[in-house]
């Protein structure tokens, strides 16, 4: 033991282990790699690595997602959770139905030629696997999917979950990867409309990774908790009538030019393993 101890002390006390020459060479190597990346010399190798390793990330993410789902299930009463889940599913289905109905009703009145625009079957979409979540400050802000610019994706395309609810928007693409902001992230904003009689428009923007705030709503508009909020169609590549969430609170002050509404998005991260990107 005594000799071992001596060896350990030597290891830590002598400076041979801290070789300035090795460190300098290493940093020179890193600098060269970074330069080669920005000169796009490494692009083929990076692209190959992305294609080859993407499935592994999806598998690991899926395993983590399952653990999270187990934790979530145990956090609540089992029966209550099941009932809650059923009700949420029903609510989601009905919400989509209402959104479709309202949108088609409006279109009937205004633009008969666009009557079939909102039929889900006519929308072009690309199914994607979620590879990882990116969080900042404890809140999930964005997620990475396994399709990129080579598959025709580009910044600005909306991402919807399996049940048809908007979960985010593509913000950046690589050849075989894309990053999408979550709807609740402050990086994410949509031109939105409240599905009321006046089809009040505004801007829906994520708030602290938790909720969505709808801003720039004129003071004269009547909005109330429970109103459904959908995309307005005023934004390029984002069709009308995609469900963003429902109003949970309205902030109105006479001193302000606009009123704001707090929305509850319909995101369930446990279900976010697959998603669809709506392409033009």
């Amino acid at each position: 033991m005594g000799s071992c101890s001596g060896g350990t002390s030597n290891y830590f006390l002598d400076m041979k282990n801290f070789s300035l020459r090795n460190i300098s060479l290493f940093f020179a190597g890193i600098t060269a790699i970074i330069f080669l990346h920005y000169l796009r010399v490494l692009s083929p190798a990076e692209s190959l690595a992305q294609r080859a390793l993407n499935p592994f990330f999806s598998v690991f993410y899926s395993a983590g997602g399952k653990l999270r789902a187990i934790y979530d299930r145990q956090a609540a009463e089992r029966d209550l959770l099941a009932e809650n889940s059923d009700l949420k599913k029903q609510l989601a289905e009905q919400t989509i139905e209402i959104a479709k109905f309202k949108t088609i009703e409006d279109e009937n009145k205004l633009l008969r030629e666009q009557l079939n625009f909102f039929k889900a079957g006519e929308r072009k979409y690309l199914m994607v696997n979620v590879s990882s979540l990116v969080s900042a400050g404890g809140a999930n802000q964005s997620f990475v999917v396994d399709r990129g610019s080579a598959d025709g994706l580009f910044a600005g395309l909306p991402v919807v979950a399996g049940n048809g609810m908007v979960v985010g928007k593509i913000v950046e693409t690589k050849e075989h990867l894309s990053e999408a902001c979550l709807i609740s992230s402050s990086r994410c904003q949509f031109a939105a409309a409240i599905a009321n009689q006046n089809r009040t428009i505004g801007l829906a923007k994520g708030d602290l990774g938790l909720t969505v705030k709808m801003d720039f709503i004129p003071q004269t508009e009547e909005i109330k908790a429970g109103d459904l909020v959908v995309t307005s169609g005023l934004e390029k590549n984002v069709p009308r009538g995609l469900v963003l969430g429902k109003v949970t609170a309205v902030n109105r002050s006479n001193k302000e030019l606009w009123q704001t509404a707090v929305l509850e998005p319909f995101i369930d991260l446990n279900d976010l393993i697959f998603a669809a990107v709506l392409v033009p």
Binding site: L53, F56, F57, S58, V59, F60, Y61, S62, A63, G64, G65, L67, R68, Y71, D72, S131, S132, L133, V134, S135
Partner: peptide, 11 residues
Amino acid sequence: FCQVGFLSALP
């Protein structure tokens, strides 16, 4: 894989 895929999904 663990850092980027697995841990990112944990609560």
